[in-house]
Write a protein that binds this DNA or RNA. Structure first.
Lengths: 209, 209
DNA sequence: GCATGTATGCTTACCACGTAAGCTTACGTT
DNA sequence: AACGTAAGCTTACGTGGTAAGCATACATGC
């Protein structure tokens, strides 16, 4: 069987690991886009044939899920939550959002492949504590966390979907690079303000219950 | 050139139209899933070869965008907004959500392909009026509408992502159909309550500004 | 009626993808 | 040295989007 075969007895030593595959996939994804995230391309990034990946993972979709879980887990690994649940919640949203904007090509993946609960729950444990410490029931706490989570992801989808990223699509206007950069900055500011407004509304709405 | 060639002068009469392609795509999508949404399958649904579709649309991605815009527009066509902006906003969310749950296989498409502004703006005009009538600036109104929009879409992603829909994946438990149906209903209720909670929080949060 | 122009649909072909099957290689153990 | 085992490789199949060129069916002008 593949994956997690006990290294006890012999066999050819592995050249690659699941973690390396995941890392290579993230590199390809960030640098070349979602369409370039093919088995052959990932394999060649590791100096290995495409079919060799199947010795470690059952298929392409498993790689995508591994990418999703890895990005989510590392983005929220060092979540030092503030004392209040609302502070911890906005901190979670900020960290999640930062990861999404750093990996824009991964956003559609996050949208399509749900994070494995076994990955998410431990990471969000700190967050849950702030709620229970404040006397909020677990069900309610989960609803608030997940509501902020889906809002953050949905917002990132809108932001990166509007700007497909790798493709060059502006071919008409003749403004110079300076004006272009200024325009980009204005757009970033717009999305950030929008995000903050929606997030704050949701959090204050939860406070008023 | 393809698409919108004036029907003034001659030429072979068209057997299919963009609207028919869109409708066929939605049928295939609903009945057979996103993976089945191929050029050949859409063509055969219309009694036409795959390549014939290219006479009306530039490629597969254009069909996906057409599906997105059509679903969005028809879902929100008859939005009779209540007198208050908050009522209109929750009405918008409900109509949007209803469409998403009726077309679960389309949810990933909505996530990936932004709705064309020329489609969205007229549909949401009624909504905007309620805000301006209440003295809310357009920028702020748009932020509120879009925040609710991305929350609704993000939530639907979580709901349908958890349950891939067409695939059969429950193969172990031996509970009868009755228990299964009850479980499904409980799950639906859970997601609906979660959705309502997050939506209400956001709306009340916007009211408290 | 017939030639001409034009838009539509069809056929064929190409290349890239995911992945199933079977073989080869490089280890630890005996 | 022989064997068992796990990893990697080669080959091949089916399916996808779509580029190129041909066949078809209409309106128009003679």
């Amino acid at each position: 069987m593949n994956q997690a075969s006990r290294p006890g007895r012999g066999g050819r030593p592995a050249q690659i690991s699941v973690d390396q595959i995941t890392a290579a996939a993230i590199q390809v994804l960030d640098r070349e886009g979602l369409d370039a995230l093919t088995m052959r391309r990932i394999g060649s990034h590791l100096g290995v044939a495409a079919m060799s990946l199947y010795r470690h993972l059952p298929g392409r979709d498993a790689i995508l899920s591994a990418v999703v879980n890895h990005l989510f887990a590392t983005a929220l690994a060092d979540l030092d939550a503030g004392p209040t649940w609302s502070g911890a919640l906005t901190g979670f949203a900020a960290a999640y959002r930062r990861m999404l904007l750093e990996h824009p090509n991964a956003v559609p993946l996050l949208a399509t492949h749900p994070v494995d609960p076994d990955t998410a729950v431990p990471v969000l444990a700190v967050l849950l504590e702030r709620f229970t410490a404040a006397g909020v029931a677990q069900d309610e706490a989960l609803i608030r966390i997940q509501s902020v989570g889906v809002y953050t992801l949905g917002h990132a989808l809108a932001q990166v979907g509007a700007r497909p990223g790798a493709e060059g699509e502006r071919a008409e206007g003749g403004e110079g690079d300076g004006a272009e950069a200024a325009q980009d900055q204005a757009e970033l500011d717009y999305y950030q303000r929008w995000f903050d407004a929606g997030l704050q509304a949701m959090v204050t709405g939860f406070e008023h219950r």
